[in-house]
Simulated scan of single mutants.
Amino acid sequence: MITLHTWTTPNGRKPLILLEELGVPYETVPVDIGNGKQFEPEFLKIAPNNKIPAMVDDNADDEADGGPLSLFESGAILTYLADRHGKFLAPSGAARWQATQWLHWQIGGLGPMLGQLGFFSKQDDAFALERFIKEADRLLAVLDTQLAASQYVAGDEYTIADIACYPWIMAASERLQEPLAGALGKPNLQRWLGLVGARPAVQAGMKWKPRGA
């Protein structure tokens, strides 16, 4: 069984979407980061960086180690699941590295910049706000240009690169519409949002909430 420790953030939704796409059984453990649950000792055993998401696969088939496998960092989790189940990431060749480079682009650029913009949009710091608006605009323009040349982020196949980017773009669309109106309205980006958002597994992952929330 796969146990996913997560929360209702863009990074937390990435593995939820992929697990829904794969159709494999899994359980969720909510980690309420607003109440500091990411610092509890049991969570730190599997996520020493005190960040969600984190995952435990009780049936990991690692020939060297066997037994349960714990992973933290969303990119590592997406890559592991895609490789293990043979979907949404090519096993080798150019297609694999195209998807991998866009996955890392999201992890290193799109996510952090949109996250910082979200933070500074609520602060009285005009210099920081302008800086992150410009960088977010630039990154969204890069993505729109890429999507003008291909159906999905890494080419004409849906991959974990799309899964990584989608929750962040949706979060920006919901929370940063005013500062990013022009960038978010780009036609290729909007086409891609509609295409990915129509997938039932994506809808399920985006709707997830902890019980009682």
Score class of each variant (00 low, 15 high):
R131N: 03
V196P: 12
G155M: 05
F127Q: 15
Q203W: 04
L139K: 01
K209P: 05
Q151K: 14
G205H: 03
L140V: 01
L193I: 09
W97G: 02
S121N: 14
K186T: 11
G115R: 02
L89M: 11
I169Q: 09
M206G: 05
Q190E: 15
A161S: 12
Q106V: 13
A172G: 09
K209Y: 05
D137S: 07
G115V: 07
G118Y: 01
P167C: 11
L81W: 01
I133K: 13
V202Y: 07
P167H: 08
A183V: 06
D125G: 08
E157G: 03
E130L: 05
I160K: 07
I160C: 10
L176M: 09
Q123S: 12
Q123Y: 07
P167S: 11
I107G: 11
W208E: 05
E135R: 09
T79Q: 11
Q123G: 08
K122N: 12
V202H: 04
R131E: 04
G93E: 14
P187L: 14
P200V: 01
Q98L: 09
I169P: 06
A141R: 09
L180T: 02
G205Q: 06
A128W: 03
L195H: 02
G86R: 12
A172Y: 04
Q146H: 04
F132M: 07
G108T: 04
S173E: 15
I163Y: 03
D125V: 13
D83E: 15
P179W: 04
E130Y: 01
G108S: 12
G109E: 11
A149E: 13
E157Y: 03
H85A: 12
Q190W: 08
R191S: 12
A181I: 06
Q190V: 15
F127I: 14
E130D: 14
W192T: 07
R138G: 00
L81T: 08
G86I: 11
K122Y: 06
A161P: 13
H104D: 12
L176S: 10
C165F: 12
R84P: 01
E174D: 15
A141H: 05
T100R: 11
S92W: 06
A148H: 02
G155R: 00
D125H: 13
F120C: 08
R175T: 15
G194W: 02
L189Q: 07
L147P: 06
E157V: 03
G118F: 01
G185Y: 12
Q98N: 14
R84S: 07
L78K: 07
C165Y: 05
A172H: 01
I163T: 15
C165I: 10
Q106F: 07
A204E: 08
K209E: 15
G86M: 13
G109V: 02
G182Y: 06
Q151I: 04
A164D: 07
D137A: 01
I133W: 00
W192E: 11
F120K: 09
L143W: 02
W97L: 13
A172L: 07
A95T: 00
E130F: 02
P167I: 09
T145F: 00
G194M: 05
W97R: 10
S173I: 02
R96M: 10
I169D: 09
F127C: 04
F127V: 15
A76S: 14
G93P: 10
G194L: 02
H104N: 14
L110T: 13
R96D: 06
G185W: 12
G111Y: 02
V196S: 09
I163F: 03
